[in-house]
Design a protein around this nucleic acid. Structure first.
Lengths: 197, 197
DNA sequence: CCCTCTCAGTGAACGGTGTTCAGAATGTAA
DNA sequence: TTACATTCTGAACACCGTTCACTGAGAGGG
């Protein structure tokens, strides 16, 4: 029965993450409540804590899935575009990022709404997921700036990602007036098109 | 006494905002609690609600002050640099933004941590404060791209602000590995220096 | 078949939020 | 002093995540 318990635990854990993912996608991270979740899963509140250490780690699991989907969507955007000029590949990547954030707004928001006060460092899988995104950007960057040293081209890569992220973030949160949805794509294109050299 | 109460209310409101500002600066938005605040102000919890509709509006007041300080800091960075080339002025503005966010990290974070789910629109003063920042950016942008139409140059302005914001945000939150403090300035400089035309 | 005995699962209870509102306290006027 | 109006108070409420003393179902031996 030790084996049996583990199987039941694994099963419950998976169901909880599935349900949490649906909730986050539909209503956002703030709608993820322990009692509601237990209710939907047909278990007690306590059962959640038999299987997951925290509500926070549950969110981490959901975010892990979101990051995976994000990575796939971004990679797909340049899968058949290897022959395009590097600037156009950067634009394609960025628009895919915008598109994903827009179509999965609440799940995408949850990626950055989570607490990360524990220590100076972020979970490893989070770093890995970001590094995966960086890899895609780094190729075009090195093509555009072949003379640039590795340190600077890495900085440029992270800087470009952060820039696009900032545009998408402030735009989708409607924190900046006069940036309707359809203009965000143009904003991204404008900035990336004007990268010199 | 109607006058008298108004004066007392105004006084209490001011003291509450002062105390809240200190708390947010020292410990962050999450440390702002109604009971603690009442304790520090020497009043009852209920008194807060006689004078402020909400804990959220209290945060808005604090954020208003932070935005004002931010605006002053950013404006000061180019006050004596009118003769510099536009790209250098953009860099000065951006580094001032980075500097302010770094030196007032918790208060600056609070600017964007606040709930804005109420309706599709953000408070008016928030928009005004942002527009003030945009004005500073718009000048150099129009100098760099004199042939650009107003619509596009406005998009470029907002896009550049969002970009710098994204770099500062992800960098200071340590959400991106390998971007130590001193390299963020270089990251910003790299990107802005490579704006073409 | 029954009786232990173990242990996973339960949900009431705990500590912590923001917010409210019946009543106490204070002030005003007759 | 008394009657009334106004202001202020803090216990109580609703709602979080989290815990832990209990329950009850199932295993194994007699």
């Amino acid at each position: 029965m030790a084996k049996n318990t583990k199987a039941r635990h694994d099963d419950l854990r998976k169901r909880l993450i599935d349900l949490a993912e649906k909730t986050v996608e539909a209503e956002g991270l703030s709608a993820l409540r322990a009692r509601d979740l237990a209710n939907k899963a047909g278990c007690s509140v306590g059962a959640i804590y038999n299987v997951l250490t925290d509500m926070n780690t549950l969110t981490l699991h959901v975010n892990g899935r979101t990051f995976k989907r994000l990575g796939i969507a971004v990679a797909a955007s340049i899968a058949d575009k290897a022959d395009l000029p590097p600037r156009d590949r950067l634009i394609a990547l960025s628009l895919a990022y915008l598109d994903f954030a827009n179509n999965n707004f609440k799940a995408w928001t949850a990626l950055f709404d989570i607490e990360m006060t524990a220590g100076p460092d972020v979970p490893e899988w989070y770093q890995n997921a970001l590094n995966e995104l960086f890899r895609h950007i780094n190729g075009p960057v090195r093509e555009i700036y072949p003379e640039m040293g590795k340190i600077d081209s890495d900085l440029m890569t992270r800087g470009l990602f952060s820039s696009i992220h900032g545009i998408v973030l402030l735009g989708l949160q409607r924190r900046i007036s006069g940036v309707p949805q359809e203009e965000m794509a143009r904003m991204i294109t404008l900035i990336l098109s004007n990268l010199s050299k």
